[in-house]
Nucleic acid binder design. Structure first.
Lengths: 187, 187, 187, 187
DNA sequence: TAATAATCGAGACGGTACGTCTTGTCTTCGT
DNA sequence: ACGAAGACAAGACGTACCGTCTCGATTATTA
């Protein structure tokens, strides 16, 4: 066992960087966010940022992971269709309006250009936990629902794809139709 | 009416740029591809590139659009499930191995950071035409299949999402399961 | 023969950089002068500075060489002693007050740390030409005056050394004494 | 009167720093010597270095002052010319080959950029003591030799200037000529 | 024999210059 | 008028060192 020596990491600096990234994402967007202005906004030296994160993607994923899970929690509804439906509407809003959702999209985007970010996104697998929570509610009425991996993809894939390729959420009506068909297929 | 005077645009230069982009995408990837090295690789002045395209995304979309549609065409199979299934396998390969597929993913990625690219991607809507072709084949046996927009999303969304978030295609077995459930839901 | 192609070097940018260095040397001194603030002061991109000069020493030597020769020119005096004496006083002032003289000292200083600068300083040999001009005037009365290299060193060496090690010029009285002794030794 | 309490200064740390500076000067040169690598080389914390010295120049002057005086001591020769001559050859070697001599040149160089270092160099006045020792030997035969300040400058100035501006010592032949002329002037 | 206090090595901190890179524009000459 | 070549201003990149700070641990002196 080695006792760490030297000055300990400043939790204040860490939090300032995470907050700065949150703010900048909203204010200027992912593309215009640079390691330089993150450091300046956080009131932190640039090397301090590089000491703990290798790029803006890594900071962003740390900044938004917890938020995402919390924000996607939904109350159980009476009916399976309402459960799925409500969740999809919630998710559509998350991905097109809320900062952590926009951050997640930016990260998926970056992942297509950078293998390191791809690995981070793959590991974070942000949507799986809240989606599985919802799926578990409808599982009793859906005996043919496939394994989690496939079921999650079936539920959120169409919506996520639509958002990523058009920038807009699917119409509520279409989401309802989608949920209905899936439930039918899983029955 | 103005008859253009002076030296006309060089078709040779245009083609050299498109070829350079194709090559560079494979050799160095989207991120490392710059307007500078595109121009150098094409043996063309940088201003010539900027004169006709506004950025690498625009060049790329011009370079790969036609290819995509052609490469995703599939032969009709005997059974609906085999039609969908074969197409999905083909699409998985396209998105993870073939250059136009990788280019499309890169463009979707860039679209998350750049509204102008998002617009290009939205307009190109690369996957819809070949997907609709396939859907039309199974439509007779799928009376409850929703409108094209939703149906396309339901079919390819789970796969595309999986590729974009993990970098790998879905397992063939999972694709089969997915097609089966959808057909059930559409029946 | 190769005709140079592309946009030619901007003489305006070159002059702006040389002027900026002159100004900054006076305003903030050699140590605080950086490639960054030279570029900013000149209203020029940093790469433009690096394209033509490798460091501030190289810019400075280009900026002050011509000035130096011109500023050290002295009128012939009636007497040999007055010729040497007047020149030494002039040189003391040059080295302790005038910008090109301060620049030259800074360059000699830098030369002790950087072999490349040392080479530049060696080649410029700023003091030799004006000093030889003066020596030529007293040569008729100084038959034993040694070769230029040694004579220049004997005349200006004591003063330059004094300035470099104390920052101040030698007292006029001491300069007079020095010139007198040298003339005696050369007679 | 206050007797200092607390842990006393570590003489071991002080010596380690001085040794590290000596080594680094030879190994990497003055320019590449940083407070950081001095501390690392000495196996000492950076604040410990800053606690006792304000910069590398200050350390260097402490590290080499004593050496210089000792190393420049020369045996009395029979003849005045041989006394001066031998000393000048010795000094040329000192300034171009021996570490303390190189350190002294580096300090004179730094002094042109930094007033604080200039003050240190001015106070150390490294060459005066050994030079005066030699001058005293020839004073009996040199009734017109001026005051120490001027005489020292006259003797070593030409050589030091030559070394500082060219990096090389003067030719032995030229040194001999120089000494001869000075003695003539002082007679 | 404690308590006190200044030192020590280690290393993170905010700051800033470094020299390189790419961006998109411009200028020049040749086609 | 368009082509290539390449210089231009701008500014982010990631690294290095600066001098300061905050640690826990050590080492004398003082009480």
């Amino acid at each position: 066992m080695t006792t760490p020596t030297g000055r300990p990491r400043s939790e204040q600096a860490r939090q300032a960087v995470l907050d700065a990234v949150d703010d900048l994402l909203v204010e200027v967007g992912y593309a215009a966010m640079t390691m330089k202005n993150i450091a300046e906004r956080a009131g932190v030296g640039r090397p301090t940022v590089y000491r703990w994160w290798s790029g803006k993607a890594e900071i962003l994923i740390e900044a938004c992971t917890e938020d995402a899970i919390r924000e996607l929690a939904t109350e159980p509804q009476g009916q399976p269709r309402e459960d799925l439906d409500g969740y999809l509407v919630r998710l559509g809003h998350f991905l097109t309006v809320e900062p952590p959702g926009l951050a997640y999209r930016a990260l998926i985007g970056e992942a297509q250009h950078d293998a390191k970010v791809a690995e981070l996104v793959r590991k974070a697998d942000l949507l799986a936990p809240p989606t599985i929570t919802v799926l578990d509610r409808v599982r009793p009425q859906s005996p043919r629902m496939p394994a989690d991996g496939v079921a999650v993809a079936q539920l959120v894939g169409p919506l996520l794809t639509h958002v990523l390729t058009t920038g807009a959420p699917m119409a509520d009506e279409d989401l309802r139709r989608h949920a209905e068909i899936l439930l039918e297929g899983w029955r």
